[in-house]
Amino acid sequence: MIASARWRAAPARPRPFFLWLFLPSLAAALLFVAALCEVAQYAFRVFTPGSLEAGGFTLENFARLARPIYLSVLADTLLISLATALFTLLLSYPVAYAMVRAKSDFVRSLIMLLAVTPLFTGEIVRTYAWILVLGSNGFVNSVLKAAGLVNAPLTMLYTRFGVIVALVQFSMPVMIIILAAALAHVDRNCERAAANLGAGPAKVFRHVTLPLTLPGIVSGTVVIFAWTMSAFSTPQLVGGGKVLMISNLVYLQGLSSFNFPFAAVLSLLALAVAIGALGSMRPFVSRLERKAAVN
């Protein structure tokens, strides 16, 4: 690899410190590939119940995926990830817009802080917080009961609804950052030109701003989709075992049943879905970018 690198680019210009820069990155990449290869090789090994040692090679672990439960968990995972991505987008766009376009510096900073801080408090803190908010004696039910709106507490924990509510909040900071970056790059002159030509604010938004931020919208949605596929503690704790996603099955199979081979298969499945989602979006994104360039 190094030899071919030299051969290709060496004559162009001197490259000081090339190896110094290259080797650490190469080491990190090899480590990651090695970890993924471990997962991949376990996926093809025979599971001996009650033992961590995997046996010879087999394809049986993959065949097991065809059982209805795994298809339904996969469908659930996709559904929850998709719903989360869409709701996250709907709720994040106005916030990102306000954050970029607010006239006051203070308001912009305030929105920024409120919107971004949750990203850095971590998964566990936020998941636990949602248990407090959504539980039978939780915040929402207490408020509703006090207001006389409900007699019996609403069931929100241990439902898909509850899981999605928590996941959307979990995902919004990232979406807002991506959308804000896209909005910040919109050339305001395009909007002004449209307004001068007599378009109202709604029209300007629909025909100018929205199309110009489409690449951000698409990439944000894809990132959140992949991100949600990866969520573990939220479906685990807020879902209470009634809402299963692939991540929970991997844990159940891997650390709680020590079926490492099948946990590996499920991990690969999740990886494939994430890559698939990304791949299917790529032509869409580049077409949008071309379109945006033409406009």
Binding site: A35, S230, F232, S247, A263, S267, A270
Partner: peptide, 10 residues
């Protein structure tokens, strides 16, 4: 993009 549990498991 790789789910964190896949990375962790690896």
């Amino acid at each position: 993009i790789v789910p964190h549990f896949t990375t962790g498991f690896g």
